[in-house]
């Protein structure tokens, strides 16, 4: 359990991490859509970059972000005394 005096700090860090991830997700989506056409001019291996980013790149980044988030949030929890007990 998290002690009462730890709660505000724990929640502040949790909140900041949430804002960072959701902000990056929404911001990244909008930026990708805005720049998809100019990015399409580059075509390594035949893939136009704008298409590739929306078809694969962004999705793979989302999954990496999810694992990163799960680890990061667990570290925050542990630092403030939340133990994984059943």
């Amino acid at each position: 359990m998290i002690e009462n005096e730890q709660r505000p700090a724990h929640w502040r860090e949790t909140f900041a991490l949430m804002v960072a991830i959701i902000g990056a997700l929404v911001g990244g989506t909008v930026v990708l859509v805005l720049f998809a056409v100019p990015l399409d001019a580059f075509t390594p291996l035949g893939f136009p970059i704008g298409f590739y980013a929306l078809a694969q790149g962004a999705l793979i980044v989302c999954v990496i972000a999810a694992f990163w988030f799960a680890n990061r949030q667990e570290r925050i929890d542990r630092r403030h005394g939340a133990m994984e007990d059943v």
């Binding site: 991830i21 989506t29 989302c62 988030f69 799960a70």
Partner: peptide, 9 residues
């Protein structure tokens, strides 16, 4: 995919 991430967070 974004939805699954948002839900997790």
């Amino acid at each position: 995919i974004g939805g699954l991430l948002v839900s997790t967070v």
